[in-house]
Design a protein around this nucleic acid. Structure first.
Length: 443
RNA sequence: GCCGUAUUAGCUUAGUUGGUGGAGCGGUCGGCUGUUAACCGACAGGUCGCAGGUUCAAGUCCUGCAUACGGCGCCA
């Protein structure tokens, strides 16, 4: 029963002239008294199948004629090459079996015309029916690209001898401000869902020196944008004996390597989404420029944008700034007051911290945030007190500095943001199977 | 948290200055075709988001509520 034959192989010509058994789902269906054309899909592609009344058992012909879209089928027939068939090959059916029928009282709710008309396909209806929308070609394509990107991240780090390392999802404290934590009951106490692997990675930094993960992070932000999820996959890395510059180099190399990988392995999928491959190839090959926060502020002021030194760069300003860039670029050296305590102040000028954000072009915004960590006991205590953050929840974090602290740093990359940008998605929801945001936890 | 927009058949939607709601897709039946988002005909399918109000008359105007979507803040 296990399937061993895939439509992509039929379309590439491997079975032409052979009688085969094909398993798949009906994607399109048109019929008459004498002939049926069915487009069958599987995970690898589509193929047109033809049943002629004259060539097969009449009862069998009628059952195929009445089959509805998304019924699963097993078809036996001869593979022919035929210019009239999309993809160049088709199956002439000699016998067919409906495996999982679709009932006419309850036909497949997602029609092609509905999807065509909704551009980008993110209506409430499609979100409610996400479990069914997954099997349509746009979602399938997105999920394949997503898989390749995940694989590419693992490959990048493993090739460089990074150790994959896991942090708990239930945590006691916050990385960022406490307002964005999900609180969960924990046997009479309160626990929170993690926002980042970073603090726990720093604990293992003196042991493993080069570490990474890809794991879910949770943020209870009521953000209603095309860049935010409450549960997202976070690719993070941490290295010992390295500073802002080394971390940034990894960030750049990682993103370029992802772009290169999808270009090599998913160019058909990218093109089917209407993506310009020249663009992706530019992201894969060009260096990413660096710009200090001060330069960014000056540039913006020169453009007439109202911004004062010390203000964080919000999305509206990022957008103006990145408008003229055609590759991702780094923003570095933010003012200390705009960033949390774990960022290390710049020894050359204590007003700034050694940090960086990587901003993607085309309006996709921030995809990486990272930098050098405050690493000495003295500095971390100063920064925590300065911010008025209580010390107690961070005792373990301070301990890391008490016992052989070393310079170190790392970054976090929003994997869905990268998927969304590289695939040219209209919304971050398009690149994750079951998106979670402030208003939706179902299906 | 703030601002804006929307809600009409299973889906996508039209609906004029207020005068008893149309279409395409999907479904059923029939016809027909090497079709390819097939085509042709017929049928079924609607408390116009909910609750009030104005009016002789409300899908349409007003108020409130609900839900959704879009954007901002915050961030990856």
């Amino acid at each position: 029963m296990a399937k061993t034959l895939w439509i992509s192989d039929i379309q590439s010509g491997s079975f032409t002239g052979e009688v085969i058994e094909l398993q798949g789902w009906i994607k399109r269906h048109r019929s008459s008294g004498k002939i049926i054309f069915m487009t069958i899909r599987d995970s690898t592609g589509e193929i047109q199948c033809v049943a002629k009344k004259a060539d097969m058992n009449e009862e069998n012909f009628d059952s195929l004629k009445n089959a509805l879209i998304e019924s699963s089928v097993k078809l036996t027939g001869l593979v022919k090459s035929d210019d009239r068939a999309p993809g160049g090959h088709e199956l002439t059916i000699s016998a067919g079996l409906i495996i999982g029928a679709v009932n006419a009282q309850n036909p497949f709710p997602i029609t092609e015309s509905a999807m065509e008309q909704t551009e980008g396909g993110e209506t409430e209806f499609l979100l409610d029916n996400r479990h069914l929308y997954l099997r349509t070609s746009r979602m399938t394509t997105m999920l394949k690209i997503r898989s390749t990107i995940f694989g590419s991240i693992h490959e990048y780090f493993r090739k460089r001898d990074f150790i994959e390392y896991q942090a708990p999802s239930f945590v006691a404290g916050a990385v960022e401000g406490g307002s964005t934590l999900f609180e969960v009951p924990y046997f009479g106490r309160k626990a929170y869902l993690t926002q980042s692997w970073q603090l726990y990675a720093e604990a293992a930094m003196p042991a493993l020196e080069r570490l990474y993960t890809i794991a879910p992070s949770f943020r209870a932000e009521k953000s209603r944008t095309r860049r935010h999820l409450t549960e997202f996959w976070h690719a993070e890395m941490e290295i010992a004996w390295g500073g802002n510059e080394e971390v940034m180099e990894h960030g750049e190399a990682l993103v370029r390597s992802i772009a290169k990988t999808i270009l090599n392995e998913r160019s058909d999928e990218l093109e089917s989404l209407g993506r310009d491959l020249n663009l992706i190839s530019r992201y894969a090959d060009s260096p990413y420029p660096r710009m200090r926060y001060d330069e960014a502020v000056e540039t913006l002021q020169g453009m007439g944008v109202e911004i004062e030194w010390g203000q964080d760069l919000d999305y509206s300003k990022e957008k103006v700034l990145t408008k003229d860039f055609d590759v991702p670029h780094f923003l570095t050296h933010y003012p200390k007051i705009a960033k949390p305590f774990y960022h290390r102040p710049d020894p050359d000028d204590e007003k700034y911290v050694l940090c960086h954000d990587l901003l993607a072009p085309e309006g996709y915004g921030e995809i990486i945030g990272g930098g050098e960590r405050t690493w000495s006991e003295k500095e971390i205590l100063e920064r925590i007190d300065e911010e008025g953050t209580p010390r107690e929840p961070y005792e373990f974090y301070i301990d890391i500095r008490r016992y052989g602290g070393v310079p170190h740093g790392g970054f976090g990359m929003g994997v869905e943001r990268v998927c969304s940008w590289l695939s040219g998605a209209d919304h971050i929801r398009e690149v994750i199977p079951f998106p979670r945001d402030s208003r939706r936890v179902t299906p």
